[in-house]
Design a protein around this nucleic acid. Sequence first.
DNA 1: GAAATAGTGTCTTTCAGACAGTATGTG
DNA 2: CACATACTGTCTGAAAGACACTATTTC
Lengths: 305, 305
Amino acid sequence: MDTDPQGGKSGGADDGERAFLAAYDPRDFPAIAVTVDIVTLTLRAGVLHILLVERGGPPFQGAWALPGGFVRAGRESLDEAAARELAEETGLDAGQLERVHLEQLGSYGDPGRDPRMPVVTVAYLAFAPDLPEARGGGDARAAAWVPVGALALDEPDAARPRPPQQGPGRGIDGGDSAPRTPADRAPGQGVAEASLPLAFDHARIVADGLDRARAKIEYTPLATAFLGAEFTIVELRGVYESIWGSPLHAGNFHRKVLSVPGFVEPTGATAARGGARGGPRARLYRAGDARLLHPALLRPEEGTR
Amino acid sequence: MDTDPQGGKSGGADDGERAFLAAYDPRDFPAIAVTVDIVTLTLRAGVLHILLVERGGPPFQGAWALPGGFVRAGRESLDEAAARELAEETGLDAGQLERVHLEQLGSYGDPGRDPRMPVVTVAYLAFAPDLPEARGGGDARAAAWVPVGALALDEPDAARPRPPQQGPGRGIDGGDSAPRTPADRAPGQGVAEASLPLAFDHARIVADGLDRARAKIEYTPLATAFLGAEFTIVELRGVYESIWGSPLHAGNFHRKVLSVPGFVEPTGATAARGGARGGPRARLYRAGDARLLHPALLRPEEGTR
DNA sequence: GAAATAGTGTCTTTCAGACAGTATGTG
DNA sequence: CACATACTGTCTGAAAGACACTATTTC
């Protein structure tokens, strides 16, 4: 019912609520700050990365956190606030931003999630093609692309599809997330073992975002959002392997992608070079016009019953 | 990064933080009211119904709206707020509430969605077994179960949240069926379906909730949440048919449900009576322990790509 | 030329959907 | 008894997964 004047929640609060609603002074309302936080995923050198900022002040000073900020009350929608924050943080212009997929992930409002005051944050999930090195968002804060495998994440919920959020009392423990991340295929540099903690409840938000991403590329063509305008089937397979964290059968994947109507369409051109150590030049494709994959690409079986 | 009012700022972890907190006044922040609104679905006489309340004052006086209310800042989580509102509105006790499935649907915060002030609402989706007639939430507001087919809903947005399978298309089944409820103070008591307007942006929220419900019963056993503790396969099929709005092949559905591990388990008993006009007594089942259906029940094709 | 790689052909298994067909109830 | 209804068998087609194979490029 959305802010209902005669709304009689909780016994006595009734009249008070009615009274101050009559005054229509927003400042009289239960003070809750509303922010947006963005889980921005991209692939860099075949490894899944997330955009993070380093906190310059308490709480969680020095820790990494999701980029985000306050929603401008009454002047922008939640989607607009998220797009604005993403642009500020990445330095993307409007044109580039169009190639980025942005969707709402969920809201998080456990009491105490911010020690300073009640804050409800609306989390967003973004899929971006490889972007230039991050710059701080105008202010002094450092921003960087961090391999997802380096993060200490909360264990995903058993019911994986869309876990809205967790009950209270669950801190940021999340200690035991196994290093089962795809980032292991990182070329060269040994990735720090899933140990980097995140501020606030951002470990949970990121875990939920990854769950969503893994599910979403199953039945939508959004994996193409991680690539440039033209790409090869092999590059597309790399997206799936990085996000799902498991290798896929090259031949079957190839045939499957081409068989789903509207997923990709050929450009007629071929890649400039063959494979790294030989092989024919791959054909190039661009994203098709399908918005859902039919039938879907199923990810390989995994635990869970 | 969540709420970082003054970007930089440093200081010893503890002292700095304390000072910071002391100097901090929540009222300095953009004030946005945060509410929860609940899309509660149930089946009554085989027809999908939604719980609505009638608004007693402006704006949208006399219109129907989703039940909900303010989140108690700092004293409850969003999930708790939704559960509390649902309990208040339905009169369910804690025990009954456990049989109700409740999950976060999404947040809505367009400027102007409430003419009085900036309000962000966190919408929830609930699946409930057949419940007693709704009572107002303690106050004078009328609450009622309304057939979903009677509502004027926004067209589902093709790309929106996450409708696996099927794309946009089909409104609400419209088909509606026979039984009508007392809730029919709605205009057009006859076949004039899909005409009852909702307050605020609640038509969009309900449309999103229905999309989610249709998708969710595909790959989770949550259809059982609409039934009692024991049910027949035929009743379960009725849930799918009501929510998807299309008839399913009885024989294939039966075999499919029994073949999915953990979906249902037999109680050994049979229904008291056979079919309405004859037939054997159906076996009874209860919900199994699976949280995901593997493989999923796919809803029948329906054009659109 | 050796080796790796892009892409295709084919077989097996699974599973959805379309029919049956059988047993068990109700009127 | 007539007939609806719960449930089961069987066939067909679609599609996923496992190989095996050809063609093309790099070193």
